[in-house]
């Protein structure tokens, strides 16, 4: 191509674009952004298509693992005897400054100046969408493909504690002895892998507050409890979207 031929060609730089063309282009961009905003950010979806995700308990058959380990906590029966804590400490050598499971306490006012106390056992919720796993920079923690347990590999942990910040349930602590973050793993290494059917805390509970089992098994007690009629089932902090696997009931 010759230089003088090139000089004859129409310029393609921005100076030739008319303001109407610019406006059109911008409008197109806004329209597309608006479409997505309306669809997802503002959630302008119909109620009918949204109802499936409103409950905290998945539909039977929609449990992603098998065994899908889970714990059901019959909250009002907890009396804070803390045998579960003691059993956990002994089984998993938890230091006294940390915990894998603990009991929280709430007070609610009744009539005539009286108060009712509720004890709330808490532990790792082994979420289906675990925020702790997402943030770990060294993949030292992950969701076990078979059981759904959120496990730790302490030797890969660099102690950045990002997972501790990410966890909505405050279920992780930094264990000085191993210089790594430690957490509940449903006693996988200490009990389940050795053929035992439940965790140390479940075995220790004298009031049958904690029930452990496989949700994918429709005959299991955990499944029956959270799929029972007339039962209110709730999880802690559902708004985080982590899809926890520790369910609370009062039945």
């Amino acid at each position: 191509m010759k230089i003088d031929e090139l000089e004859q060609l129409e310029s393609e730089d921005l100076s030739t674009i008319t303001s109407t063309e610019r406006r059109k282009f911008l409008k197109m961009g806004l329209a597309i952004t608006g479409l997505y905003l309306g669809g997802s950010v503002l959630s302008l979806t119909t109620v009918r298509s949204a109802h499936a995700s409103s409950g905290v308990v998945p539909e039977p058959g929609q449990y992603p693992y098998n065994p899908h380990y889970s714990m059901v906590i019959r909250e009002k029966l907890c009396i804070d005897c803390e045998r579960c804590k003691a059993a956990c400490v002994e089984t998993n050598s938890v230091p006294e400054y940390g915990f894998r499971t603990t009991i929280l306490e709430r007070r609610r006012a009744l009539t005539a100046g009286e108060h009712e106390t509720t004890f709330m056992p808490v532990l790792c919720n082994h979420c289906n969408r675990p925020p702790c796993v997402r943030v770990c920079p060294t993949t030292a923690t992950w969701k076990d493909k078979e059981t759904g347990i959120v496990v730790m590999n302490p030797s890969r942990c660099i102690g950045c504690k990002t997972c501790m910040t990410a966890c909505p349930y405050n279920a992780r602590y930094f264990k000085e002895e191993i210089r790594a973050v430690d957490k509940c793993n449903f006693c996988y290494d200490t009990r389940l892998s050795k053929g035992k059917k439940d965790t140390a805390c479940v075995e220790a509970c004298p009031a049958d507050v904690r029930i452990f089992g496989n949700l994918a098994d429709t005959e299991s007690r955990v499944f029956k409890l959270i799929h029972a009629p007339d039962t209110m089932v709730w999880v802690l902090r559902p708004e985080t979207g982590a899809l926890p696997n520790v369910y609370y009931i009062n039945a």
Partner: peptide, 27 residues
């Protein structure tokens, strides 16, 4: 009404003086 009488480890610690050490920290 279990917790009316069952004050638990926490309740007992509170009763015999101050908040329990772990109770304060866990919060």
């Amino acid at each position: 009404r279990c917790t009316t009488c069952h004050i638990g480890v926490r309740g007992h610690a509170r009763m015999i003086g101050g908040d329990s050490k772990e109770g304060g920290e866990e919060g």
